[in-house]
Amino acid sequence: MELENFLKYGENQFLPNLSIDLVIIGYQKDDLKCLLLKVGPKWVLPGGHIKIDESVDMAVSRVLQERTSLKKPHFKFLKVFGDKHRNFKEEFKVFFKEKGIPWQEGHWLTNRFVTLAYYSLVDIENTDPKPGDFDEAAEWFSFDELPDIGLDHESIIRTARHRLKEDIQREQLTYNLLSNEFTMPELHRLHETILKEKLDRSRFQKKMLGSGLFERLPKLNKSTPGSNPYQYRLVQKN
């Protein structure tokens, strides 16, 4: 069984005392969401460990692919969470009991762990969320309506939400949350949702087009009555 092998031999396969936690962010129906996994009565962030023979970026990409099924997922470093008391012995003790696995004092997972936190922006419609061996379910939740969060993951989630708000004012990366083709009104609404403030539409569009990152497509969006805004996409680089 995969889970049993991980619990038994993981300390020989992964870098010790180091983990990865991922805030996977999506956007749907004018709502910003994050992907969470159900472990017992609580929900936690997708995460994992770094294999001895892989780089940190490779590990992040691997875990993201396992959880979202995306081939080349976007991700960005968030922060190191390394409080001196950061270990979750009692939580793992409960987990072992629920799974019917004999408890061992001093198990490698009960050590203090420093976690490297990342956030990832994805198009929800292109994802196929999958729970791991530890998890019972994988679901999207609005940042404004989070369930009961376990471990210290609510702090990581809030940090990612705040960082995204800061980052989009310095660089353009929100297109990762939309489909490959989108309209300027869609991009405008997305930014208003993230920033939680109104933005002047004409000034916003001028700024986006002035970035040189987007190209206008010849076809018009006919999905809504009335005005049919042009579709845009990220400029394809050779």
Score class of each variant (00 low, 15 high):
Leu3Val: 13
Glu4Met: 11
Glu4Asn: 10
Leu7Tyr: 07
Lys8Arg: 15
Lys8Thr: 10
Phe14Pro: 01
Leu15Arg: 13
Pro16Ile: 09
Pro16Asp: 08
Pro16Thr: 05
Asn17His: 09
Asn17Pro: 03
Asn17Lys: 14
Asp21Ser: 10
Ile25Cys: 05
Ile25Met: 06
Gln28Gly: 00
Asp30Met: 08
Lys38Glu: 06
Gly40Ile: 08
Val44Lys: 03
Val44Gln: 07
Pro46Asn: 06
Gly48His: 05
Gly48Arg: 03
His49Asn: 08
Ile52His: 04
Ile52Tyr: 02
Ile52Ser: 06
Ser55Asp: 11
Ser55Phe: 12
Ala59Gly: 05
Arg62Trp: 05
Val63Leu: 12
Gln65Ser: 15
Arg67Ile: 01
Arg67Leu: 00
Lys71Gly: 04
Lys72Cys: 04
Phe75Tyr: 15
Phe77Val: 04
Phe77Leu: 06
Lys79Asp: 05
Lys79Tyr: 07
Lys79Ile: 11
Asp83Trp: 03
His85Lys: 14
His85Ile: 12
Phe88Lys: 13
Lys89Arg: 11
Lys89Gly: 11
Glu90Asp: 14
Glu90Ala: 15
Phe92Trp: 10
Val94Leu: 08
Phe95Thr: 00
Phe95Val: 01
Pro102Leu: 02
Trp103Pro: 01
Gln104Tyr: 11
Gln104Ser: 14
Gln104Cys: 08
Glu105Gln: 13
Leu109Pro: 00
Leu109Gly: 04
Asn111Tyr: 10
Asn111Gly: 04
Val114Phe: 12
Tyr118Gly: 01
Leu121Phe: 09
Leu121Cys: 15
Asn126Glu: 11
Thr127Leu: 15
Pro129Ser: 05
Pro131Gly: 14
Pro131Cys: 13
Phe134Leu: 06
Phe134Gln: 03
Phe134Gly: 02
Asp135Gln: 11
Glu136His: 14
Glu139Ile: 09
Glu139Ser: 09
Phe141Tyr: 09
Phe141Leu: 04
Asp144His: 14
Leu146Pro: 02
Gly150Phe: 06
Asp152Gly: 10
Asp152Gln: 13
Ser155Thr: 07
Thr159Gly: 06
Ala160Val: 00
Ala160Ser: 07
Ala160Cys: 10
His162Trp: 09
Glu166Gln: 04
Asp167Ile: 07
Ile168Pro: 03
Ile168Trp: 14
Gln169Tyr: 03
Gln169Gly: 11
Glu171Ser: 13
Gln172Leu: 13
Gln172Lys: 09
Tyr175Ala: 04
Asn176Gln: 12
Leu178Trp: 00
Asn180Pro: 03
Glu181Arg: 00
Glu181Leu: 00
Phe182Arg: 01
Thr183Gln: 02
Met184Arg: 08
Pro185Thr: 11
Arg189Met: 00
Arg189Trp: 00
His191Ser: 06
His191Leu: 06
Thr193Cys: 15
Thr193Gly: 14
Lys196Ala: 12
Lys196Val: 09
Glu197Val: 12
Glu197Asp: 08
Lys198Gln: 15
Asp200Tyr: 04
Ser211Cys: 10
Gly212Ala: 08
Phe214Trp: 09
Glu215Gln: 13
Leu217His: 14
Pro218Lys: 15
Pro218Cys: 10
Leu220Tyr: 15
Leu220Gly: 03
Asn221Met: 09
Lys222Leu: 12
Lys222Tyr: 08
Ser223Gln: 05
Ser223Leu: 13
Gly226Leu: 14
Ser227Leu: 15
Ser227Thr: 12
Asn228Pro: 08
Pro229Tyr: 02
Gln231Pro: 05
Gln231Phe: 09
Tyr232Ala: 01
Tyr232Ser: 01
Arg233Pro: 03
Leu234Trp: 09
Val235Gly: 08
Lys237Ser: 13
